[in-house]
Simulated scan of single mutants.
Amino acid sequence: GFVYDSRNNLQMRGLVVLLISKTAGPSQVSSDLLAQDMVSGIYPSQRNLAEITELIHTAFLVHRGIVNLKEWTVSDGPLKDMEFGNKIAVLSGDFLLANACTGLAQLNNTKVVELISSAIGDLVQGIYYENSSNTEDNGITDGIDIGTWEERTFLSHGALLAKSCQAAMELAQHDKEAQRLAYNYGKHLSLGHKLNSDLQPFVKSVEPMSFSLSAAPVVFHQQCVGQERWHQQLQQAQTSRNMLDYSKLLATVKSDKGVSSAADLCCYHSNKALEAIQAFPASEARSALENIASAVTKF
């Protein structure tokens, strides 16, 4: 419930950055004077980084809330109101990003600025891929295998957390190995979390109204049956109004190995995240991160 809850913004990314900062603690090369600034085993700069990570994530959530006005109809309400809403969403997202960039500059660490700036670039690229796949007919993404899905999902869902975890290690002057482990934890946790989210419509007892055709189980199914067969299955699931019958399509995907393959991949990423975090000394904070990594495999 903590890791995945569609009703509340639980600020998981900021918390993970704080927990991994506490797990790693001060580095051997950091001065005793610097260690005096720590509160509950976390540097002030790492707390600021956690806030910046949440700000960036929230900014992109606001930007994703922009409505496609081409699909707007008269029955949906006044178009002017929606145009104004879209402008406010763009400005609000930009304002949050500007605040995040100001906070980033105040950390006075060029390596961290470079890491988080590249994460923002990754997010933009990932959202571009998402939007381009949604504009294709029925959301069909021809030629996408699970490897491409993982690459694109990392850009839109994993890069920010992975690079923020690495940046937290850099702020505490940890070596490259600690930075690599923190990055891997963030990366694999994010991918496992997204796989868990994609699997929800396929494992819940209540059938969903709709689901994404670029979800991991669908991509696995598409890869398994081949493009031609997949197109046939989509045509068979179409109603007389040229809409998709999602309950029929759900049964088609569940009848093959798509769902089990996605669940296996989710477990793989969870295990890789656990492997990375268990390289750090045992502590209460590490146990919390282990619990979060294990929770993504509970569907």
Rank of each mutant, 00 (worst) to 15 (best):
F2T: 06
Y4A: 10
Y4C: 10
S6Q: 10
L10R: 08
L10C: 06
R13T: 08
R13A: 07
L18M: 05
I20K: 00
S21G: 09
V29N: 10
Q36A: 14
V39E: 05
S40L: 08
I42C: 02
S45L: 05
A50P: 07
T53G: 01
T53E: 01
T53R: 01
T53M: 00
I56Q: 09
A59T: 05
F60Q: 07
L61G: 09
H63F: 07
R64I: 09
R64E: 15
I66V: 11
L69S: 08
K70R: 13
P78R: 14
L79M: 14
E83M: 12
E83C: 12
E83W: 08
E83S: 13
F84K: 14
G85L: 03
N86A: 06
N86D: 06
N86P: 04
I88V: 15
L91W: 02
D94K: 02
F95H: 00
L96W: 03
L97C: 02
A98S: 02
C101F: 03
T102Q: 11
L104R: 04
N108G: 03
N109Y: 07
T110C: 00
T110P: 00
V113C: 10
E114Q: 14
I116D: 08
S118V: 11
V124K: 14
I127M: 08
N131L: 15
N138R: 15
T141D: 15
D142I: 03
I144C: 12
T148S: 14
S156R: 14
L161D: 12
K163F: 03
Q166R: 04
E177Q: 03
A178Y: 01
Q179L: 00
Y185S: 00
L189W: 04
L191V: 10
H193M: 10
L195I: 09
L195N: 12
S197C: 06
D198A: 06
L199Q: 13
L199V: 11
F202A: 02
V203E: 10
S205W: 12
V206Q: 14
V206W: 01
S212R: 14
S212K: 13
A215Q: 13
V218K: 12
H221Q: 05
Q223K: 13
C224G: 09
V225D: 04
V225A: 05
E228P: 03
E228I: 00
R229W: 09
W230I: 00
H231P: 03
Q235A: 13
Q235C: 06
Q236E: 12
Q236A: 14
Q236V: 15
A237G: 09
Q238K: 13
R241C: 12
R241H: 15
N242D: 07
N242L: 09
D245S: 11
Y246D: 13
S247N: 15
S247P: 15
L249R: 07
A251L: 14
A251H: 10
S255F: 00
S255L: 06
D256F: 11
K257A: 12
S260D: 10
S260L: 07
S261M: 08
S261Y: 07
S261E: 07
C266D: 13
C267Q: 15
H269V: 03
H269M: 01
A276N: 04
A282I: 15
S283K: 02
S283C: 14
A285Y: 05
R286N: 02
L289D: 01
L289G: 00
S294T: 13
V296F: 08
V296E: 10
V296Q: 06
T297R: 12
F299N: 13
